[in-house]
């Protein structure tokens, strides 16, 4: 069994670590410090932390101002609020002027601790990816999350980091090196190529085992950076098998599937299937039952792979 770690805790600890090396760092919190783990900074490095209250639109604008004056603000709230509530402030005062503002979108995907439809953001990747100048990263596990926080902090310009709430499997070793951009081959295979992003990559990895037990060899590639998308890496990985499945804990519109289809449709059209949330909103429920109902378990990924192979044959 892989080790399980909460990405939100990793984010908070990495923020605290950064306060020692980055005097210009500032964590802005939308009154969710005890959910997002911004509290780790609030309690241990209070000079680097400000609660902006329950007022996300103002928080986004404040971050823009801070960035324009040389600070590196990391906004911390739920993905649903960061991607939606303050979107106009984000586009006009952060992405249009290309300001150095970082967004930590916590509680992304459908596993949000039973909070339900308002807190389950099925559309954050689609929205953020559509903003010019924005970088969008969805780490697969805690190891990658930590490195992504470091890389995004040192990269100039706006960026969004997609973080999950509950402990999830660690799939990368300590020798793993994350870079903004390149796709990450996880497993070699010849029958189809599976692209995964965020924690869904770990579920896709389990799906590969299920498929292997049925004699199907899947080539698994993790896509941590949804924007800028690694077009060459995606085309090369697709060419290996000639059949492509994408899987994500996000709507099937505008997310990883959309990004991959934009690349392949123009440069290397192959039979393709997009797996994810079927254009619906979420609800409250325990994790296992949620993954089952919304079709995100490894079993569902394997079924989608088989459907693709049957169609492609």
């Amino acid at each position: 069994m892989a080790k399980l770690i909460e990405m939100r805790a990793t984010w908070g600890e990495t923020m605290l670590e950064l306060t020692k090396t980055h005097p210009n760092l500032m964590v802005l919190d939308g009154d969710l410090g005890n959910s997002t783990m911004a509290q780790i900074v609030a309690y241990n490095a209070p000079d680097f932390y400000m609660n902006m209250g329950i007022a996300e639109q103002n928080m986004m604008g404040v971050a823009a101002g801070m960035a324009s004056a040389g600070l590196i603000p990391w906004l911390s709230s739920f993905a649903c609020f960061l991607a939606n509530r303050d979107l106009d402030q984000l586009r006009v005062t952060v992405t249009q002027p290309k300001l150095n503002v970082k967004l930590a979108g916590h509680y992304s995907g459908i596993l949000t601790g039973k909070t339900g439809k308002t807190h389950i953001d099925v559309e954050d990747i689609a929205i953020l990816r559509a903003l010019p100048h924005m970088t969008v990263v969805a780490p697969a596990d805690s190891v990658e999350c930590r490195q992504a926080v470091l890389a995004l902090t040192d990269m100039p310009g706006p960026a969004y980091l997609r973080i999950t709430r509950d402990a999830s499997p660690v799939i990368f070793g300590e020798d793993y090196r994350f870079a903004i951009g390149p796709v990450v081959p996880i497993r070699e295979g010849k029958d189809l190529t599976i692209f995964g992003t965020g924690v869904q990559t770990a579920r896709a990895l389990e799906a590969c085992d299920l498929l292997a037990s049925e004699g199907i060899s899947a080539h698994l590639v993790h896509v941590p950076t949804l924007k800028p998308i690694d077009g060459n890496g995606i085309v090369a990985a697709a060419r290996k098998t000639g059949r492509v499945l994408t899987t994500e804990d996000h709507n099937i519109i505008g997310g990883l599937g959309g990004a991959v289809a934009e690349v392949l449709g123009q440069h290397a059209p192959f039979p393709m299937k997009i797996h994810g949330l079927q254009d619906c909103y979420g609800e409250s429920g325990p994790n296992d039952a949620m993954l089952e109902k919304y079709g995100l378990t490894p079993k569902h990924v394997a079924l989608a792979a088989k459907a693709l192979l049957n169609k492609a044959r």
Binding site: I54, T115, T118, G285, K293
Partner: peptide, 28 residues
């Protein structure tokens, strides 16, 4: 409350619960 397929959602959903006049959950 909070169980799968329940009408008692974690935040009010006017499409599910009798007596709820408006969905809410995102403050403001």
């Amino acid at each position: 409350y909070d169980a799968m397929n329940s009408r008692m959602q974690g935040h009010p959903d006017m499409t599910k619960t009798p007596g709820i006049d408006m969905s809410s959950g995102s403050l403001g």
